[in-house]
Computed example of a mutant assay.
Amino acid sequence: MGITDVLCQALQQRSQDLLNAMHLVSTTKSLIQKLRDDGWEPLLASVIAFCEQHEIDIPDMNARYTKGRGRYRRQDEDVTMEHHFKICIFTVAIDFQLQELKSRFCELTTELVILSSTLNPKDAFRLFKIVHICNLVKKYYPQDFTEHEQELLESQLQHYEFDVIKHPDFQNMSTISELCRGLKISGKSNVYFLIDRLIRLVLTLPVSTATTERAFSAVKLLKTRLRNRMEDEFLADNMIVYIEKEIAGNFTMEMIMEEFYSMKNRRQA
């Protein structure tokens, strides 16, 4: 929890810094993996010290682990107490956390966000790098740019670096959407039409600060103590209805019943 807290706090900030957030995802994965590989012995020593300080009985870690309760208890000859705590609890919990992070922040998504950030005009285009932009196009948008256009894009970027980035009208911009509007107003979108196309493609990425913040708020309201056993799929469905309640409010009971009636293998209650 201490390792993931920094990432959770960054994702809940009102002003999202997606580049640093993606870097935090990578460092969080690395730290959790390091905890899995080297963290058991320090954790065990810390727990033993705590138990000794507060006079709590410490189980014999070399003893056989006993499964079940009451008359159904039985010992597993191949599993010690330490093996049970380390492999069946400690490692399993960490593997679940790593799997969750990898499913929500896969390597391709993380790299896509990092490469896309090179187009951001924030801090006078501090992150601008031609090689990263070209890699972004080659890896993620090969169907939107022909081979000839990819070569031409690199030439446009060289002019763009000395023209737009140095232009005083673009120095105070902080978002890609502002940059897109600025290129259109100045007419430079016609000159750098390939860069303008790429910027518009990046703007369609499903990365929304507002949606992220609303999702975190919805979880706090929906995932209550009485609903702590709610399955992920059911929770996700409830969150969609809650977050998009303005749209959901347009549906009537009759519309829902008609939809279910029209579906095969369904019956009305």
Rank of each mutant, 00 (worst) to 15 (best):
Q13V: 07
D123H: 13
Q75P: 01
S117G: 03
M173Q: 08
L11Q: 06
N135W: 06
V113Q: 05
D237L: 07
L18T: 04
F145H: 12
E244V: 04
N190I: 10
E41W: 04
V241F: 04
A10F: 11
I176G: 06
N62D: 09
Q97S: 13
A215R: 14
A248Y: 12
M22T: 11
T4Q: 03
E233P: 02
H54D: 12
G187L: 05
V25P: 05
S155V: 06
T4W: 01
S174K: 01
L119T: 15
A49F: 07
C8V: 05
G70N: 03
L98C: 14
E258D: 10
K86R: 08
N62Y: 05
L221C: 10
L24S: 01
Q97K: 08
K102S: 06
F85R: 11
R104N: 05
I247C: 00
E52W: 04
G187Y: 01
I56K: 05
K129A: 04
T209F: 00
Q97E: 11
L101I: 11
I195D: 14
I195S: 02
L101G: 05
K34L: 13
C8K: 05
E213I: 14
F96M: 01
E161T: 07
S103H: 14
A21W: 00
I243P: 11
F50L: 08
F170S: 09
N135F: 02
M255P: 00
T28D: 02
L201Y: 12
M81Y: 15
H54F: 09
W40L: 00
M255T: 04
I130Y: 01
E213P: 00
D76R: 07
V202P: 13
V219I: 13
K138S: 13
E107Q: 05
Y140K: 15
A124K: 11
E41S: 15
R266K: 07
L203I: 10
E161L: 03
L43F: 02
E161M: 09
K86A: 07
V137M: 01
L108N: 11
F85I: 12
K223H: 11
S103G: 15
F234G: 00
Q156I: 01
H148K: 09
H83D: 09
L152M: 11
I185Y: 14
Q268L: 15
E151C: 04
D232Q: 14
A248N: 09
Y141G: 03
L101K: 08
L198D: 13
Q143L: 13
I32S: 07
D169S: 11
H54V: 10
M257A: 12
V113R: 05
L179H: 13
H167K: 01
T224E: 06
G70A: 08
I133C: 02
I247E: 10
H159D: 14
I56E: 01
S262G: 05
S262K: 13
F105S: 03
T110C: 11
M253E: 15
E254H: 05
F260I: 10
C8F: 08
N190L: 15
S186D: 09
T80D: 06
V6D: 15
E246R: 14
D38W: 00
Q268M: 14
F145L: 06
